[in-house]
């Protein structure tokens, strides 16, 4: 991997055009732009997409924001659909119908609903079969497209429209599923977790590895949703930084079974710092709910220790 230079990288032509209908301040398209910048110039790509915010907003007939070939099929089958595309590429190349000097890369995007939940089987199948593709989850921690319903990526205690805070409820009961680890346990050659950092080096380097590592690769991007998380939309970079500095969203990669931390906060911040910025956790700061924050912190600590253990092996 050559040295990362943001000023060089930003010269690349945009592969996601403006004019898409994602909300102002959306994290998903920041993630998409970052991933696509990792494609080498001259390489072709086919982009897959699970149904979700990104899909309905980026290809509303007749306006496609995608400069590359693009296929949306349905909600739960982005993995399988791109399996078919990637296999077609191999089949057509074998038969000489695609020139040997043409390189295609296959990248599919899905939200956490389409990836952790309804598309989980299709994703697992595609990963296990080892198609030469990258599945990118933009994880905003709920079904945002349909109006902020909880998913298995939603953090514990989050106030969502299907886990509303009420007189008998403190939001979602369960902590979130750790999908990156689950996909890493498929023994894929590359799986990583990332988000937006100041110079975008982490997401760029991981995207390039994921795209250019042969086999099925997985990228999980924490992509905040200002509407669902209820923070000031201009603050996305701060939110992401707090997610990693509190170790809520550790940055790591798993390459051929070896776990590696790609960022370790100099000083691990208390989880309150991350929670208090977001309206979905507002209730945790009411008097009498102190134990809920303690509980949240304990879960973050336990998982962080687990990752440190895995990365130290």
């Amino acid at each position: 991997m050559a040295g990362y230079n943001l000023k060089e990288i930003m010269n690349k032509p945009e592969r996601l055009s403006p004019g898409h209908r994602m909300c102002a301040g959306c994290g998903a398209t920041i993630g998409v732009r970052a991933v696509l910048r990792a494609l080498h110039e001259g390489d072709e790509a086919v982009i897959g997409n699970a149904t979700g915010c990104l899909e309905v907003s980026s290809y509303m007939y007749p306006y496609t924001a995608w400069e590359d070939s693009y296929i949306h099929n349905a909600f739960e089958n982005a993995g399988a659909t791109l399996s078919g595309v990637e296999t077609a590429y191999r089949a057509l190349k074998k038969r000489g119908k695609i020139s040997p000097d043409t390189t295609y890369k296959f990248i599919t995007f899905g939200g956490d609903g389409g990836t952790y939940d309804i598309g989980f089987q299709s994703l697992s199948g595609a990963m296990e079969r080892g198609h030469d593709m990258v599945y990118v989850c933009y994880d905003n921690g709920a079904y945002m497209n349909t109006g902020i319903q909880r998913s298995s990526a939603t953090p514990q205690f989050a106030d969502t429209t299907t886990t509303p805070v009420g007189s008998l409820s403190n939001g979602k009961l369960q902590p979130r599923k750790d999908l990156t680890a689950i996909i890493a346990e498929h023994n894929v050659p590359y799986a990583a977790q990332t988000t937006f950092t100041r110079d975008f080096k982490d997401i760029h380097v991981k995207s390039e590895k994921a795209i250019y590592t042969e086999g099925a690769c997985f990228l999980n991007i924490l992509a905040p949703c200002p509407r669902g998380w209820r923070y000031d939309m201009a603050d996305i970079m701060k939110i992401c930084q707090l997610a990693v500095d509190t170790c809520y969203w550790p940055l790591f990669e798993v390459e051929n079974g070896t776990w590696r931390l790609t960022y370790e906060p100099k000083k691990k911040l208390p989880i309150e710092d991350f929670l208090k910025e977001q309206g979905r956790f507002k209730h945790l700061f009411k008097p009498g709910n102190e134990d809920l924050i303690v509980q949240f912190q304990e879960e973050v600590d336990r998982r962080w220790e687990d990752i440190l253990f895995r990365c130290s092996r």
Binding site: Y61, T64, A65
Partner: peptide, 15 residues
């Protein structure tokens, strides 16, 4: 099939 035989047509939609 409402396919789009072009890329990046969203640019003409002014958000």
């Amino acid at each position: 099939g409402l396919m789009m035989f072009a890329g990046g047509t969203s640019k003409s939609f002014k958000t």
